[in-house]
Simulated scan of single mutants.
Amino acid sequence: MTHDVDALWTAVVLPTGPAPLARAAVGVLVGLGLGLLAGGALAVRRFRGRDAEASMEVAQAAA
């Protein structure tokens, strides 16, 4: 069974070359990278205010 899948995959990839598969892989990686950047930016914006509030509360409690 594995040989049939390998032969079919080879028959599809060889005529078109590896470019479409490589482009699809790069597209997925770029999409994941952009998602991580956007998520990180949102997390920073979300928690930045909390850190300032927590610092003020600690300073007020110490005083």
Rank of each mutant, 00 (worst) to 15 (best):
A59P: 00
V44S: 10
L37Y: 12
L34D: 02
A22F: 04
A41F: 05
P15H: 06
A54M: 04
F47N: 11
L21P: 01
G40V: 01
A52M: 14
V58N: 09
T16F: 12
R50F: 00
P15F: 06
P20Y: 02
V12F: 15
F47E: 09
D51S: 11
R50T: 06
G39A: 01
M56H: 09
R45S: 08
R46F: 06
V58F: 11
A41G: 08
M1Q: 15
E57N: 12
E57T: 13
G27K: 05
A61H: 09
P20I: 01
T16D: 10
S55R: 13
G35F: 01
A7M: 03
A19C: 07
A54D: 03
M1Y: 13
V30I: 11
L8G: 06
G27H: 05
R23N: 00
A61V: 03
V12Y: 11
A19T: 14
P20M: 04
F47K: 08
V28P: 02
L14H: 11
M1I: 14
V30D: 02
D4V: 13
G49E: 06
L42S: 03
A52S: 15
V44A: 15
D6G: 03
P15R: 04
L34F: 05
L8C: 07
L21Q: 11
P18C: 00
G39H: 04
R45K: 08
V13F: 05
L37W: 14
G17C: 02
A25I: 07
G17S: 02
S55M: 08
E53T: 15
A52Y: 14
G39F: 01
D6Y: 06
A41W: 05
D4T: 12
T2D: 13
L34C: 01
V30Y: 03
L21F: 13
A62H: 13
P15C: 09
A52V: 15
T2M: 13
V30Q: 03
R46G: 04
P18L: 02
R46Q: 08
G27R: 10
A38M: 02
T10H: 15
R48V: 03
A19E: 12
A43M: 06
G40D: 06
W9D: 12
R48K: 00
S55E: 12
V28A: 02
R23D: 03
R50M: 03
A7G: 03
L34R: 05
A24K: 09
A24Q: 11
A7Q: 02
R45E: 09
A25E: 05
D51G: 07
G49N: 10
V13R: 11
A52Q: 15
G39C: 00
G49R: 07
D51N: 07
L14A: 14
V28Y: 02
Q60I: 12
A63D: 10
S55P: 02
V5K: 07
A25L: 08
E53F: 10
V12D: 07
M56D: 09
A25V: 08
A25M: 05
R48G: 00
P18M: 01
G27I: 08
